[in-house]
């Protein structure tokens, strides 16, 4: 059988795409309403976060319901890049959890959300290597076992697969960026190494798809080659963006430490303008930015 369309979204069957699209657009409206309320009461909430969340919701919704360009496997890959990588980044950069916690009044709902966010299972889920394993491991399973072919024509399995792709993409991005308040903060070394490993696995899978299609599928060579290169270079763009988020966090944290050191007299010595020794002993500019 020629697998002409692996996505119900591509052919128009299945309720997963429209349902999630409606959900995420509702979330965007709620986000905008919450941000407006925050500003009205005098809190600072940068507008670019509104823009980021809205853009993330729109591209996600579009990728889930529109018919995407290119051959079937290329369209599948465009959807993967948007649903699992680009849209989660835009949504996570808007710090939705922070906004929710700020806008909710004290009460059972807010307490419940905090309890969940700070619970032990969630803390484990937010361990960067585990999040990466769930995300990239799922990607490998999907493309290197018969899962992709099996999902074809089985709406429930297909919805589960695509739900996992979106959830794991969000989890991975949330964990690596670590912009929202969670129980356990992971240092830059953990998150940076995780990003490196995930990018590595993504690049290897992308390149291997150039020569070997997922088992049980028959795509044309042209479709396969376009999709493979799209996955490879599209992954690069998202990886650069994620690396920039991490590097900017480090830059801001070291900047704060630097200004602190310059303002305070050096504890061990003569302080500013002493015996000609530099008043600033450079700290170890450690990679533990938050």
């Amino acid at each position: 059988m020629t697998l002409t369309a692996v996505h119900p979204g591509h052919t128009g069957t299945g309720l997963f795409g429209p349902a999630v699209a409606a959900l995420v657009l509702t979330a965007a409206l709620a986000y905008l309403a919450a941000a407006t309320r925050l500003r009205r009461r005098g809190d600072a909430w940068p507008r670019h976060r509104d823009a980021s969340f809205t853009a993330g919701a729109v591209v996600l919704g579009y990728a889930l319901i529109a018919s995407l360009p290119g051959g079937p496997f290329t369209a599948h890959m465009v959807q993967h890049l948007v649903v699992a990588m680009a849209a989660p980044l835009l949504l996570v950069l808007a710090r939705p959890l922070t906004l929710t916690l700020r806008v909710l009044p004290p009460g059972p709902v807010r307490r419940g959300l905090l309890t969940v966010a700070h619970s032990r299972p969630v803390a484990w889920l937010l361990f960067p290597p585990l999040a990466a394993l769930l995300d990239i491991g799922g990607l490998w399973l999907l493309h290197r076992t018969g899962l992709l072919a099996a999902g074809h024509g089985r709406p429930l399995l297909d919805a589960v697969i695509r739900g996992h792709v979106l959830a794991a993409g969000l989890l991975f991005t949330f964990t690596v960026c670590q912009l929202d308040p969670v129980r356990r903060r992971w240092g830059l070394a953990w998150r940076g190494t995780t990003l490196l490993a995930a990018g590595w696995a993504h690049a290897v899978l992308a390149k291997s798809l150039y020569a070997t299609p997922p088992p049980g599928t028959t795509f044309t060579d042209g479709d396969l080659h376009t999709a493979s290169q799209l996955m490879y270079y599209g992954g690069d763009l998202v990886e650069i963006a994620l690396a920039t988020v991490l590097a900017a966090q480090w830059y801001a944290a070291t900047g704060r430490a630097y200004r602190r050191d310059r303002l305070l007299p050096h504890p061990g010595g003569a302080g500013a303008g002493g015996d000609g020794r530099p008043g600033l002993t450079p700290r170890k500019w450690s990679a533990s930015g938050g």
Binding site: G192, L195, L196, G199, W200, A201, H202, A203, V204, K207, D236, E239, I240, A243
Partner: peptide, 9 residues
Amino acid sequence: GLLHTAELI
């Protein structure tokens, strides 16, 4: 793949 990813970072 490793080299390519490391290069970007």
